[in-house]
Structures are given as structure tokens and as C-alpha cells.
Write a protein that binds this DNA or RNA. Structure first.
Length: 485
RNA sequence: GCGGAGUUAGUUUAGUCUGGUAUGACGUCAGCUUCCCAAGCUGAAGGCCGCGGGUUCAAAUCCCGCACUCCGCACCA
């Protein structure tokens, strides 16, 4: 199913929809999750915690979304996150100053250079607008961060453009108080904010979005010593260095030098394992190694985890080896000590980052799970049972003859244990279809026989098969079936 | 931000050229019927026709501006 099918489902079934939609001044790039979307998101994050955070005893924090100016001076976002842009006075087209100058005049000016340098280069080389030959206005900086004013003096602060800065600035306290030992993973889920020029495609490019980030602090001398590497060495990952992704085990990737060390390979391995469990089609995934021009300003080695969808390859996770870029800049700026002891050695840890885009991941899960079952004339959202917003529908075959009352009774018994949807109205087939569309893996139907012998039928979403079970078994069967793997 | 195409009920859609406040389908709700896979019947709710302005006796329809959505370019540390 394609982008439009997913969009239709999202709007009709309460997965997500535009923010502030009743007002005409609603801005682009802001979307809300409805009940089904929240259910899916919460379960996705629970899986993330199980598969990545708890697996290695990482620490999870929840930091502020508004952070002080100093944080972003140190992180480099105030300097580097801003692009030098030039605007044509005639047609209003906007271009990156450094790239346009490089293209037309073959003059390389670093993007962090003083704005005058761009203006001088433009006038010296007589650079005109590539579209309409108009003159350019003076170079300006466009910063992607949202600035906010704190208190009555409106002191300068920013909405964080990535969640990880709190992890870096909290690192000294966490390491000391949480009995930290390298390698130490610190994780965070939360909102980040970027003032995108052209937000588009609903959840895929937002101005306010969720990230799940993990920063692993490590001793850079020990990148080949990974205790748990055996656990993942046989996991097959798809790595793209040149034009085509190649499948290989984590072990092969390290031995061939395609992945620089066991440390990085380990995380690419567990990340693959995680996404496999979300229901994303791993055969359509790749870790794409980024070239020097594509990498973020802080990254030494970078792999993007990308997944193919009907609208192309989507970047779901950025895996960056950030070296000591962050800790050393925060250390210099704040004068706080960020070095820690690793056994007898004092080290400024390096950082490997797994920066996950949650919204994009949820979209991909929806697209890869949504099936058009033509044979049975139905749309089925084949979510993994543990990710389904609704685990089970509780249905009365008909309302009369006391079946409604019996159904309500069974519903009351399990409604606090599972995500349950009670439905009495309309034809039974229609109710099954409705459950199929929101991805409920099971339906329990109460019929006349239930009143006689306390048995119900359980229907499975994907196969549409039904079996009769004892009412007393419902709890245990569901518990087992919707449990996280 | 530039260029193009759009925006009508929860979803989808007719009507726009040729001005007279809107059509169908699906969905939703209630009732009847049926009683295990979108059946049928009856009824109902649901629309500032994206927002604002202009022209006109009269605007979903014509004109202008804006917003949003999608596509292409650019951007995506």
C-alpha cells in the first residue's frame, strides 16, 4: 500500500492528522497523533526500551525541551546549524550562498565564514540568480532553531533541535551518581524542533517531531572490545558503501573493514534486530555509509539506517560516531570536567549515537504492515500483536438473548489487562473488518453457545481463522499472544 | 523559498468553464431483520464548499491575497 493509502487510514482511523486544522492560520509541519497513533507509538517505544535500552543497562532521562543559549554555542548549532542563504531580489528564489558560489565561480568559502565574504565573492564574480539572472540581496543566516524568550526580559534560549544535548550536559552528574562505567549508554525519548523551510509528507518532515536517541559513551581505545559481540555477530545487516546494499553478517562486516570496529557493528546489529521486531521489512533496509559532504558537522563516521517505501528510501536512524566533539566542547564552554575513569585510565569518552526518528519509523511500520486483502475484500493492518493499538475486540454475535450482558461481563474482566475494544453494533463481519483496519490481532465473539458452556470463539486477524476456547482461557491466551518478544 | 497542480461532510466525489448557497458512494448513529466475516430495509445526524477581501441583486462557481496539501527544484547540521 502506498503513501495515500496510509494517509487515508491515518485520517479515518485516528492515527494522525493535521494540527490546529479548524483554523486557517495553522502552520505546516505540525501533526497530532490520535488514539490509535498514540497506542502504536507507546508500544513502539516500549519495544525500543526492551530491545535497546534495557538490553545493555542504559540509563534513560527526560530532559527539557527549552535549553539555554550556551548549550547551542558549545554544540555548534548556533554556528553550524545556520545556513548562509542568498535571496534573489527579482524572483525571490533562495539559494545556499556557499554552494551557489562554488558552483558558479568555483570559489570555495566555508559555510561558517563571515557573511561579508559571501557578499564580496558574489560581487567580485558577478554572480546572478541562476533562474532569472536577477541580483542577489545580502547574505543572511538562516538558523533552523526556534528561538524563545525566557521571562519578562525575554532572554535568549532555544527549543532543542535534537534531544541528545541534554544527554551530553547531564553526563557528568549521571556518571557520578548512577555509578557509571564505560561503555555507558544514555537514552532519551522526546520532542525536537527544527524550523524546516519546506515541511512535507505529514510525519516524514515535521517542524516538531519525536526522537529516540541513544548516546553510548566509550573509551576510544577499546572499540574492538565488545563483550556482547557474540550475541549479534551472526545477524545479517545490509550495508551500502557504493551503489548497492550488500547483505553480510556483523562479523563479516567488521572483518572486511566495511564497518570500522566491533563497537559500531554491535549497535548496527541490535538496531537491525529491533526493526525486524517492529514489522519493518528488513530486506528493504540498508545502512548507508555517508560521504564527507553528507555527514553532520560533528560526525566522524556515519551510517544512515534507511528503509525503502513507496515514496522512496526514508532515513529512519542516523548512526554517528561523534568522537569527543560534544563532550570536549561542553567541557571547554562550561569549564566542567567531563573526563571519567575507565579502570585506571582517565579518558574523555567518545560518543556513538543512535538517533532514531520515531514519526518516520511509525509511518514505515504502517506502510509495510498495511495490506489490501482482495480475496476477502478487506484492508488489514498486520501489525505485530505487541504493537497493535487494540489487542482484542470483544463482540457480541447479536445484542439480544442476554448476549450483550454476557459480553459486557467478559469485557469488564479483561479491559484493564489489555487494550480492548467493545462493540455490539451492526453485522459481525463489519465489526471484524473494522478491527482489521486498526490492526487488532484478535477478536473474541460471544454467541449463544457461550451461555450454555462458557466458551467463546477467538478469531485471528491475519488468517481469519476461528477457534472455540473456554472463557477462562482468554486471559492466558491473550497474555501470551500480545506479549513483547 | 521558487515553479506546477489542488483544497467541497469522517473518507471519497459531482457541480466551477456557462454565478441562483450542493450530488452520489462509503463510513457513522438509531430501529427492524439476519445470526460468524463489509447482506437487506427504514430513518437520522453530519457542509461558514480552506481562510480573508473584491465584483454582483446574487459567489462553491468570476477576480485578488493568504494558508494548507501534493509533485518537481532547492533544503534536510
Amino acid at each position: 500500500m502506498n503513501y495515500e493509502d496510509v494517509m487515508k487510514l491515518a485520517l479515518e482511523r485516528g492515527f494522525y492528522f493535521p494540527s490546529c486544522e479548524v483554523y486557517a492560520d495553522a502552520h505546516a509541519g505540525f501533526w497530532e497523533y490520535g488514539p490509535s497513533g498514540v497506542g502504536l507509538k507507546n508500544k513502539f517505544l516500549e519495544l525500543w526500551r526492551r530491545e535497546l535500552v534495557r538490553r545493555d543497562g542504559m540509563l534513560e532521562i527526560d530532559g527539557s525541551q527549552i535549553m539555554s543559549k550556551s548549550v547551542f554555542e558549545a554544540s555548534g548549532h548556533l554556528g553550524n546549524f545556520a545556513d548562509p542563504i542568498i535571496k534573489c531580489t527579482k524572483c525571490n528564489s533562495t539559494f545556499r550562498a556557499d554552494r551557489t558560489i562554488a558552483e558558479i565561480a568555483q570559489v570555495e568559502i566555508p559555510e561558517s565564514a563571515d557573511l561579508n565574504e559571501f557578499d564580496n565573492a558574489i560581487s567580485q564574480n558577478n554572480i546572478k540568480c541562476p533562474k532569472c539572472k536577477g541580483d542577489f540581496d545580502k547574505t543572511k543566516k538562516f538558523n533552523m532553531m526556534f528561538k524563545v524568550g525566557i521571562g519578562p526580559q525575554e532572554e535568549e534560549a532555544y527549543l532543542r533541535p535534537e534531544t541528545c544535548q541534554s544527554i551530553f550536559v547531564d553526563f557528568p552528574r549521571l556518571f557520578k551518581t548512577m555509578r557509571g562505567k564505560l561503555p555507558l549508554g544514555i537514552a532519551q525519548v522526546g520532542k525536537s524542533f527544527r524550523n524546516e523551510i519546506a515541511p512535507r509528507q505529514s510525519l516524514l518532515r515535521l517542524r516538531e517531531f519525536y526522537q529516540a536517541e541513544i548516546e553510548v559513551f566509550c573509551n576510544p581505545k577499546k572499540l574492538q572490545e565488545v563483550e556482547n559481540f557474540l550475541e549479534i555477530e551472526k545477524i545479517v545487516i545490509r550495508v551500502q558503501i557504493d551503489s548497492e546494499p550488500v547483505s553480510m553478517t556483523c562479523k563479516e562486516a567488521v572483518e572486511s573493514g566495511i564497518i570500522p570496529n566491533k563497537f559500531v557493528a554491535y549497535y548496527l546489529g541490535i538496531l537491525t534486530e529491533f526493526y525486524e521486531k517492529t514489522g519493518v521489512d528488513i530486506s528493504k533496509s540498508r545502512f548507508r555509509k555517508l560521504g564527507d559532504k553528507e555527514k553532520a558537522f560533528y560526525a566522524e563516521v556515519a551510517f544512515d539506517f534507511e528503509v525503502e517505501t513507496t515514496i522512496g528510501w526514508l532515513e529512519l536512524v542516523a548512526c554517528n560516531y561523534r568522537s569527543d566533539y560534544d563532550l570536549s566542547s561542553h567541557s571547554t564552554k562550561s569549564k566542567e570536567k567531563f573526563e571519567v575513569m575507565d579502570n585506571d585510565e582517565k579518558v574523555l569518552p567518545h560518543v556513538f549515537e543512535i538517533s532514531m526518528g520515531i514519526d518516520r519509523s511509525l509511518y514505515t511500520i504502517l506502510e509495510h504492515s498495511l495490506k489490501d486483502d482482495k480475496e476477502h475484500e478487506r484492508i488489514v493492518l498486520s501489525l505485530k500483536p505487541y504493537l497493535a493499538p487494540i489487542h482484542v475486540g470483544i463482540l457480541s454475535l447479536v445484542k439480544k438473548d442476554g448476549l450483550k450482558e454476557k459480553t459486557d461481563e467478559i469485557f469488564l474482566h479483561i479491559k484493564r489487562k489489555f487494550d480492548v475494544f467493545l462493540d455490539h453494533s451492526g453485522a459481525i463481519g463489519r465489526r471484524y473488518r473494522r478491527l482489521d483496519e486498526i490492526g487488532a490481532p484478535f477478536a473474541i465473539t460471544i454467541d449463544h453457545q457461550t451461555l450454555e458452556d462458557e466458551t467463546v470463539t477467538i478469531r485471528r486477524r491475519d488468517s481469519m481463522e476461528q477457534t472455540r476456547i473456554d472463557v477462562n482461557e482468554v486471559d492466558s491466551i491473550l497474555s501470551e499472544s500480545v506479549a513483547f518478544p
